[in-house]
Design a protein around this nucleic acid. Structure first.
Lengths: 337, 337
DNA sequence: TTGTCAATTTGAAACGTTTCGGTTGTGTAT
DNA sequence: ATACACAACCGAAACGTTTCAAATTGACAA
């Protein structure tokens, strides 16, 4: 049987109350007693029972982080930041991957409503919108990058219109006019915003805004490749492509390579997100970098604020930044000029 | 205040005991009562308190999975399999990433010894060897792919000698004689085994076993690239390279491309692990595939067996398989012959 | 009526902490 | 001496479940 606090107390010749304080609130106890209790604890191999502790103090000091998919290169840095920040602030983190099925999301949702975690940060664009508008609407939840719950749930994000605008402006400044867009998964607000941002930027710059230049890549490699193939079949194809994610951009570049089309000589690419794939692709991918690490930090700070009953900003917008790499170049005409 | 079981009981006009059984052991209660309790529960928005439950039943139905790094392409599939299997068997999973620092590993280790989880599967080659040989050596732990604890801790793995042998034999059968090896992180048993396996296979086939043909790539991209550069500076370089991981192989291939060396025309590559990187590289990478999904399943089954006090096999060895792709080709002389 | 039995239900204990309110004992000021 | 302040400690309650052992109920046979 695992030794409990009362075993320790007996061994040290004090009451359970004193043993508890000696271990978790040492200043409230005399020096000798403290030492006696500590010695007793180590000598019998005492380990606190966190479950009992949680029940008593009504906190678990644990957070839940809901991520769609671990395979997606977008999330690791975000997850690391969340974990770092949480641990530094005294919380453990449970990470739940929900993309596989709705059952997963439910299973993890239970953890929150059943009090096994104190709060939750959601990076998951999936369903479940009304889960936290029921009888207990006040569970601590923060969402990152994608609004899925109502406005009462705080959000940390970037301005996705701006993401698209930066990309389009960069390409336009290199002389490109026929700029195509490969869009992300339609059910994600961020993907829709990037598409809208692309349209707005094209319009504002007076560039051709053709429906055939916009293809849906659904946010994954296969979709990106398929979209690129369609673009290449156009009678008058694009000279540059803005892809809503790096993974789609890499897949699209691979299609070009397979067909002997040179990047960036024949066609330029800009991705978005700033994931590792784009750094190791050939050529390396120009991208609009999304500050995922900072988003993770801010989200956790916000969440812990919520848990502690502090007022937190409902909407935090982080700045994005374009990273110029090898995948885009001026048009031939621009070079000639 | 969140409603508790006693609120539900009051509302339904029964005792707490009956309310509990109505919800968690419905067959032990009369039809009408069951319905009354359930109605009361939903009407007041009752959610069970899992912490209290865990304290009482002395189980958390939660497992801990320790992974070195989420950035490493090796682990996602393993993690998914673990999560799937665990959820299907009624357990939740906490995933802990430990590579960042020793503190992390300790923080997560606490969860196990403090009773917040029932058991742990370790995919982590780091230190902590003696953590489970103390006063409570009997905590349920299963390790995957890398032996770090004593033989009393069950292990699920592949035969890493065989991994290397498959690769070397494949290259030899294509006419290669000067086969180099880029090894993985020295502190991992599996990396050492692959190096030994490479040596054994070379020797058995009567191929040149030169120290200069073995470089340490430390298991990551940068190391792999560096190792490749050294190999290319050799007066008589290799015609083929077996890399202990796909990521090192991809980095090494990138080095070759940058220098205008054609793969597989000038030099062939075989990686190991079977991660996604190798599928999307150019050329696509021949690799010795490690059945990570199956390993995850077996590990969880084993762990739950341990938790339930069943006897489990101390050592499970899974088969590996070579996947032929575009990165290796017969030597010119072999082609000519 | 009484007794027997099974089907339901219940009170109370238990899980291992933390913490409130109260008691003890020591030393200091009166 | 008495009163008082204060530090150190302790008993017991509480957190919200589950479950044991006992009690209640109702049906039915003797």
């Amino acid at each position: 049987m695992r030794p409990t606090l009362s075993d320790v107390a007996k061994l040290a010749g004090v009451s359970v109350a004193t043993a508890s304080r000696a271990l978790s609130n040492p200043d409230l106890v005399a020096d000798g007693t403290r030492r006696a209790v500590r010695d007793a604890a180590t000598s019998c191999g005492y380990k606190i029972n966190l479950v009992a502790r949680s029940l008593r103090i009504q906190r678990t000091d644990t957070l839940l982080a809901l991520v769609p998919d671990i395979d997606n290169a977008f999330y690791p840095r975000l997850i690391h930041a969340i974990e770092d920040t949480a641990l530094a602030m005294g919380y453990a983190v449970i990470i739940g991957f929900t993309a596989k099925s709705e059952k997963y999301r439910e299973a993890y949702g239970e953890l929150l409503s059943a009090g096994r975690v104190d709060g939750m940060v959601v990076m998951d664009g999936g369903s479940g919108v009304d889960r936290f508008t029921g009888p207990q609407p006040d569970l601590p939840v923060v969402q990152v990058f994608d609004r899925v719950y109502g406005p009462s749930v705080p959000l940390v994000r970037v301005d996705d219109h701006q993401v698209a605008e930066l990309a389009v402006h960069q390409l336009a400044s290199m002389g490109h006019r026929r700029i195509a867009h490969i869009a992300g998964a339609d059910e994600q607000q961020s993907a829709r915003d990037r598409r809208d941002g692309y349209r707005a930027a094209m319009q504002r710059l007076g560039l051709p805004l053709e429906d055939q230049l916009v293809k849906n890549g659904h946010g994954h490699r296969a979709g990106g490749a398929e979209a690129m193939k369609q673009l290449l079949e156009l009678p008058q194809g694009p000279t540059a492509v803005f892809c809503a994610s790096d993974s789609m951009a890499c897949a699209a570049m691979d299609v070009c390579r397979d067909r002997g089309i040179h990047v960036p000589g024949d066609i330029s690419f800009i991705g978005a997100d700033g994931t590792a794939e784009g750094m190791f692709s050939f050529p390396s991918l120009t991208t609009v970098d999304v500050p995922r690490a900072e988003a993770g930090v801010r989200a956790v700070e916000k969440l812990i604020g919520l848990i502690r009953g502090q007022a937190v900003a409902p909407d935090t917008v982080l700045p994005v930044e374009i990273k110029l790499r090898g995948s885009c170049a001026p048009t031939r005409t621009a070079v000639a000029a």
